[in-house]
Lab assay of single mutants.
Amino acid sequence: GAPPLPPYSAGGREVTMKKGDILTLLNSTNKDWWKVEVNDRQGFVPAAYVKKLDSGTGKELVLALYDYQEK
């Protein structure tokens, strides 16, 4: 199953993602919540729920390892 959710501390809205989604990583300075862009929406997802990909394009991409439903 998915890892436990860290307390929400990102101070911005969250976004929903599905397992297998490829998201653009915008900011990973917060260790628990990373800012991503998905379907032209920006928001935060739990860092433990995604994995960085080596895209080779200069853009940082992450793979959704679990479904996440915004609150």
Rank of each mutant, 00 (worst) to 15 (best):
G58Q: 09
V36W: 00
L63I: 14
K35R: 12
D32A: 07
A10Q: 09
V15D: 00
K71H: 11
G20R: 02
E70R: 08
V15M: 14
W33A: 00
Y8K: 05
K35L: 13
I22P: 01
L23V: 06
L63C: 07
K52D: 04
L23K: 00
L26K: 06
S9T: 10
T29P: 02
D32F: 13
E14R: 07
Y66D: 03
Y49L: 06
A10N: 09
P46G: 02
L5D: 06
V50P: 01
Q42H: 09
V36D: 00
L63P: 00
K19N: 04
T29L: 10
N39H: 10
K18Y: 12
Q42D: 08
D40G: 14
D21K: 03
A48R: 12
T24A: 11
E14G: 11
L65A: 03
K31E: 08
D54I: 11
P6Y: 03
V15C: 08
G43P: 01
D32I: 08
K35H: 15
A2N: 11
Y49K: 02
K51P: 01
L5A: 07
R13A: 15
N30T: 05
M17L: 07
Q42G: 06
G11T: 08
D40C: 09
R41T: 11
M17W: 03
W33V: 01
R13N: 14
G56Q: 11
Y49I: 03
L65D: 02
L25S: 01
Q69L: 13
E60C: 08
G20W: 05
P7S: 14
V38L: 12
N39F: 08
D54P: 14
G56L: 13
L63R: 09
L63Q: 12
A64G: 04
R13K: 14
A10Y: 06
E70A: 14
V15R: 02
G1D: 14
V62R: 00
F44Q: 02
T16P: 15
T29C: 09
S55N: 15
V36Y: 01
P4L: 11
E60A: 11
G58T: 12
A2M: 13
E60H: 12
G56M: 13
D40N: 11
N30Q: 06
T24F: 11
V38Y: 11
L63D: 01
I22R: 04
K51C: 09
L5H: 06
A48M: 11
K35E: 15
A2Y: 11
D21E: 12
T16K: 07
E70Q: 08
L63A: 04
W34F: 06
D40W: 07
E14I: 15
A2W: 07
E60N: 12
E37F: 05
K31N: 10
V38N: 12
L26T: 04
W33T: 01
A47V: 04
T24H: 10
S9K: 05
S9C: 08
A2Q: 10
V38T: 13
L25D: 00
S9A: 13
W33L: 02
E70I: 08
V36K: 00
G56N: 13
V15F: 13
K71S: 15
T57I: 09
A64I: 02
T16W: 09
P7F: 08
P46Q: 01
L65S: 03
K52R: 14
L26E: 02
F44G: 01
P3C: 05
K52M: 13
L61I: 09
L53V: 12
F44A: 02
P3D: 05
V62L: 12
S9D: 10
K31H: 12
D40P: 03
A47G: 05
K31C: 06
Q42L: 07
A2G: 11
P7L: 08
V38S: 13
V62G: 15
I22W: 03
Y68D: 00
D21S: 06
R13I: 12
W34N: 00
